[in-house]
Design a protein around this nucleic acid. Sequence first.
DNA 1: ACTTTACAAGAACATATATTCTAGTATACA
DNA 2: TGTATACTAGAATATATGTTCTTGTAAAGT
Lengths: 187, 187
Amino acid sequence: MGRMSTVDDAIVFDAVGRKIAESGSVVLQDVVAETGVSVGSLYHRYGSREGLLARAWLDAVLAFQTRFIAALESGEPDAGERAAVATPQFCRDEPARARLLICGRKEELLSAGSPLVIKIEVARANKIAAKSMAQFAKANRIPIDACRLGLVAFPLGAVRMYLPDQKVPKKVDAYVAAAFRSAVRVS
Amino acid sequence: MGRMSTVDDAIVFDAVGRKIAESGSVVLQDVVAETGVSVGSLYHRYGSREGLLARAWLDAVLAFQTRFIAALESGEPDAGERAAVATPQFCRDEPARARLLICGRKEELLSAGSPLVIKIEVARANKIAAKSMAQFAKANRIPIDACRLGLVAFPLGAVRMYLPDQKVPKKVDAYVAAAFRSAVRVS
DNA sequence: ACTTTACAAGAACATATATTCTAGTATACA
DNA sequence: TGTATACTAGAATATATGTTCTTGTAAAGT
């Protein structure tokens, strides 16, 4: 092998997330300025701007879905509530990845020109999460819409009320969990 | 007075909203192509790109807040529920403005370089809405956080699950109303 | 120690997009 | 009917930003 990277991927992705959070878009020169990694290096490491954005997105998606699915398949009686609050917890535990996932828009970070490999991996991850949710819905006799609202939409809406400016306070967890239960009840 | 516009503002704002919804950003040439209004006209009418985006945003904000505040101050016992479902209803009734308000990001449409007049008007509108919510919270002895979650965050999260690709189905209204009540109950 | 190879650097280039500019057009009102 | 005025038009220009290219560097394995 040759020389190793002096700056870790995580630091680059973090810079991408910060830019997304504060301006909604990523200019390579800003990433260069924040990380110290040169343009040439970025292209060498990620192939293109789209490659960089797509990788950062994939990184965040995988990190979140691991937690989400673990909660959903925990087998505990409050698995739904746990999955629902996985979102606010993720925002507190991994602010860098959360900035990207919550503040970024998928269409921008994962566009048609993104590397096929990454697109496939993201699609695979999404399919796994969707399957896990479908199974949970079936096992608990909840309509899939109620699941999506209670486990994804409401938690997302809640944390977006705080990010990127403020931290997500712990007390939102109770609200999010209650909103999930209300969705189950309605159905 | 001189000549009148051949193409109405609403049509231009609609094009802006569609572009925001499908790509997340607005390229003037696309607006020109969609509306038939030339670049020169756009600059004459709105002063700058930021002026156009800011005006479109203000238009959508005012349209929504009118409904929201009317529901909140209706004096009905279910004023809260009505205000909560104002969001999904707005998406169904005014899809063009909803695309802008729900899919657009405020930081992009209303930036530092936006015309001061517009910024002031938006700030004023937001202050009025905030005051209305604060009053509602006080009158009903609900924490302001619960209000913001139940009336804004949860409804927003719910409609974003569908927009911009699908229509917001009527059944989400029941979920959104229930989520609002759950927020009241938690507090 | 040597060689290979992945990484680093940044100037040069290409492209996309915003903005300006000059000229022309249609409508309201006297 | 004349004239002022808001609007229309699009080519020309400026700017911002992505991409490529060449040269150089340091670490891993032999």
